[in-house]
Amino acid sequence: MIEVNKLSRSFGPIVAVDNISFSMTKGEVLGFLGPNGAGKTTAMRMLACFLRPDSGTAKVCGYDILEEALQVRQNIGYLAENAPSYDEMTVGSFLNFICDCRQINNPEREKALDKAVKMCSIESVYHQSIETLSNGYRRRVGLAQALIHDPPVLILDEPTDGLDPNQKYEIRQLIKNMSKEKCIIISTHILEEVEVVCSRIIIITNGKLLVDSTPKGLKEEHSASLDEVFRKITCKR
């Protein structure tokens, strides 16, 4: 469902993503790991058609990110870093705006709203304006926004950052439940999360893809915990 082909992008002299290739099929949950500034966000932004790659390309659900950006965006649910949204809007009007943009009209809209609101358990803040919400609720609103059109591909940039342990657990459960029908990419710094939800791990450092394996395989190969493996691989350079 996702085919990344030699994707590269640099900002001035800094090479953020350097020649990355991988592919994913339905049912996979990919943990996108790497130290800060490794290029995870840049790579995800390119997949979500926000940034243009300098070279290389990728296909999402068969659509090219350069040629058919609109179709790609239709098939992706994207939660950007820090879950940006419009502060002055209420949660309800924000989600309705997303439905407007995604051309989800009644009667499907009501169902979609119902489902997304329930999944992310934001019923209690539905009529509150987003600027009054706590960090955790904001992120859940962002997640609801990404899920509302039931996309086949989900790209989540640090979806559990800033959540309390209960919320983290809920979000992980949510991702696990969806994983069979979808293709999900998650970037995170929480390695226990990777062990719980991810079926595959990619580690990048300085924009280069270093490891493409499974959590289990990686642990067995190095016979150490994921934490230690991560440190071993990323501290080498």
Partner: peptide
């Protein structure tokens, strides 16, 4: 400034 441009321009609109 608020980063919402990333939300807006990753929605299926040109």
């Amino acid at each position: 400034k608020s980063g919402s441009i990333e939300l807006l321009l990753t929605l299926p609109i040109t």
